[in-house]
Write a protein that binds this DNA or RNA. Structure first.
Lengths: 252, 252
DNA sequence: CGGACTCTTGATTGCAGTCAACTAAAGTGG
DNA sequence: CCACTTTAGTTGACTGCAATCAAGAGTCCG
């Protein structure tokens, strides 16, 4: 296996996701793969990037699940976003800044440090790549906003159902999991910090979803028994995940 | 009064805010003011921009308070962000897309439609303006993320206290209100949709803040009696509002 | 002066948090 | 390979924050 092919392998999720945002050519994909260097491991519960760093690179998740989080002065933690393989942990990171939140590993993670200037140069020189990255930014901001709606106006069980609906689509986008079954390796304690709930209550909500026949869990895997029913239950509307394809670079 | 001066007047909040993000020259400010055309009024409770539009312009609030909101299928409403004079209602809007949420007027509003391509051209030709707009984008995304923390991990009364702490800074930034006193024209029903609460409970939280001596209201005006105490109470840390000055265009 | 909002208050309900104990599973080291 | 520790999941009892329901009081405005 050549070096290039190996790079294409480790960057597979990244490229695969960006294909949804623009019609990438083979060369585009090679350019993207070239950005992905030096995979680094991080164990579960450790930080990929700490608070108040001023990074010159963007963490790109290659394997495992990570998150952006903040800890309040009273010790409470809120997870702001979940990052899957192929996700840039600083979607707004086309330019550097002091990081406001930490990035943590929910499971064992392997990530690549994408150099800022290389990413910027590549995007600047290639309009399709630029479009794909803009699309990715819009999707990431859509996900965060829907998360906000989740916390504000959905009940605890609805929130968790909504999470599964979203993950099902995001994982499919990068080729992980089957249509209605996927690995869900996140401890309930972390789910509670994501959903603004207590861990005990997360446990009970999961049981409710199971008793309703909407999902089941075996080991670290979840099965969604009836995606349509689950979406209705969760007041889930998938528009926010892909309806925002930009047209700035196409002919509208 | 010449036309230019008049434009500078109606764009005052916009320019004034952006000064915090970059060292703008007089010419920069004139360029920015030139983007602000055709002020349009919208009455309170009407939409500035509805769902599923595909606008070629960005609403820029000139007077009054607006918000981005979403209504769920069960009729519940969540306000995602509050926009003050000088705020672009599509901070990610350097490129067009189908709008995911509606923009609504919380009070009587006057806004300008900033043409997309004019904004893009101006930013492209002027690095200081580009920097200021990036800074604005980062601040807007920081505000939304803190809002998410608010809904997930702060109690009802803390949330409202936090809102006042944030507004105090944002309003000062555009020269509205005094150091610890400002107009707060938002009905409690809208506050409840912003904070993920019921209107009744918002009322009781406001009373609690008053009985704690932290704030008082007279008519449509709020006074923060002890900003430091209020910030402690709200677990408020102002970093997210301005610590994210980008350095992509300066020499780091 | 009537009507539409908006705010306020009280009574009641219920969702979700907290506390605590226990079980299960997964590492770890002797 | 088995004690021992750590982490994760489960259950029950109780508490409490915030929603809901309902009615009344202010305010603004045509």
């Amino acid at each position: 296996m050549t070096l290039i092919e190996d790079k294409k392998h480790i960057s597979a999720s990244f490229v695969r996701k960006l294909r949804h945002g623009a019609a990438l050519t083979m060369e585009d994909e090679v350019s993207l793969a070239r950005l992905v260097q030096n995979p680094r491991p991080v164990p579960a519960r450790a930080d990929v990037m700490s608070h108040n760093a001023k990074p010159r690179y963007l963490p790109l998740i290659l394997e495992g699940w990570a998150c952006r989080y903040k800890i309040l002065e009273n010790g409470k933690r809120q997870i702001l976003a979940v990052y899957l393989p192929g996700d840039l942990c600083e979607p707004f990171g086309l330019l550097p800044r002091v990081t406001e939140h930490a990035i943590g590993a929910l499971t064992d993670v392997v990530y690549a440090a994408v150099p800022l200037d290389a990413l910027r140069t590549t995007a600047h020189d290639n309009p399709r790549i630029a479009q794909a990255l803009w699309w990715d930014l819009l999707m990431a901001s859509g996900i965060e906003r829907e998360h906000l709606v989740n916390l504000g106006r959905r009940t605890a069980t609805e929130r968790i159902a909504h999470l599964f609906c979203e993950l099902q689509i995001r994982l499919n986008m990068i080729g992980l999991g089957e249509r209605n079954r996927f690995e869900f390796p996140v401890p309930q304690l972390d789910v509670s910090d994501l959903m603004g709930l207590s861990a005990v209550h997360v446990n009970r909500c999961l049981q409710e979803l199971k008793s309703l026949g909407l999902i089941s869990q075996r080991g670290r895997h979840v099965t969604l028994h009836d995606v349509e029913k689950l979406r209705d239950f969760a007041l889930f509307n998938a528009n926010y995940l892909n309806s925002s394809q930009p047209s700035a670079f196409s002919k509208d």
